[in-house]
Write a protein that binds this DNA or RNA. Structure first.
Lengths: 154, 154
DNA sequence: CAATTATAATTGATATATCAATTAAAATCA
DNA sequence: TGATTTTAATTGATATATCAATTATAATTG
């Protein structure tokens, strides 16, 4: 069996697509002038949808590490998009509250997100996107530890 | 038009698949005990294929930033996998030489890379992989700046 | 040839990712 | 109830990503 150089594999192509997409996304939202990262915006969009979510839940929603979420929120608190208040029911938890500035920022950036998503998916039909979803979900599943044990044992 | 939360989009699924894959990859090569990252190994594999490549060429090959490559090489020099020598023809350039330890490490890690690639792609046939390649290349292309201008103008 | 421009690599600053360790509070349970 | 375990969040350490600025050298060109 021949060994493929990493950049000949599908994984490399996945990485490449994602990097280009992220760059486009960041460049597009930079136009709004709030000085936020895509990841920060995504975090706040999720918070807006689920105002009662704590940091652990948010981390799971956006598929990021707890530590990363803590630091992303630190930055957004400094920038005034969100405030972090000790929860009354459980003093280990923090309630996260979108500020007016945070809401305004989301309102202004949402159409820009629509814009770059449409650019990235230009020319694709729903079937193609669904197939890609399926493909990626299968890879995700294959890479899970529980799956691997079964594969190896069988 | 309804606005999808980020995690309902294909881009999020791409990110998720990639993260899981990276975690599997890192965990697998950790077994070899060299204390290297996947990215470092990938860089050295490319160097082995193209021994005369300078850092800029390597950066392009592995689709990373110059600055990242400089720092990755710093680390690998410290670990003794590669040595960095000023080029005789052009003193701005650095020649990168794989050490014996670097070669040994690659030899030992290559089968592990085969292993996790096979796990990640378990159950896929070549057609499916080709379709995915095609899909990802089209996204990559759509997100390029040159493409975007044309899309917007048309 | 001297001045300007381009190139290769490094460095700085900042954001994010990941893992481990820590802290504080809540929940469990013996 | 007091000791132990679990949970939520933070913090530390290190790797990587990205952009801008810098340094040293080479190439160009007026």
């Amino acid at each position: 069996m021949t060994f493929l150089l990493p950049q000949q594999t599908i994984f490399y192509q996945i990485e490449k697509a994602l990097k280009r997409y992220r760059k486009l996304a960041q460049k597009t939202i930079d136009r709004a002038g709030y000085g936020v990262s895509i990841n920060q915006v995504i975090l706040l969009m999720n918070l807006k949808e689920r105002p009662s979510a704590n940091q652990a839940e948010l981390a799971e929603l956006i598929f990021k590490d707890f530590a990363s979420v803590t630091r992303m929120i630190d930055l957004m608190v400094k920038k005034g998009f969100v405030s972090r208040i000790e929860s009354k029911e459980d003093r280990r938890k923090k309630d996260l509250i979108l500020t007016d500035l945070g809401n305004e920022m989301l309102e202004n950036i949402t159409p820009l997100i629509q814009e770059y998503r449409m650019i990235a998916l230009d020319g694709f039909n729903p079937d193609e996107i669904n197939s890609a979803f399926d493909f990626l979900k299968r890879i995700t599943h294959n890479c899970e530890e529980s799956t691997i044990k079964k594969t190896v044992e069988s």
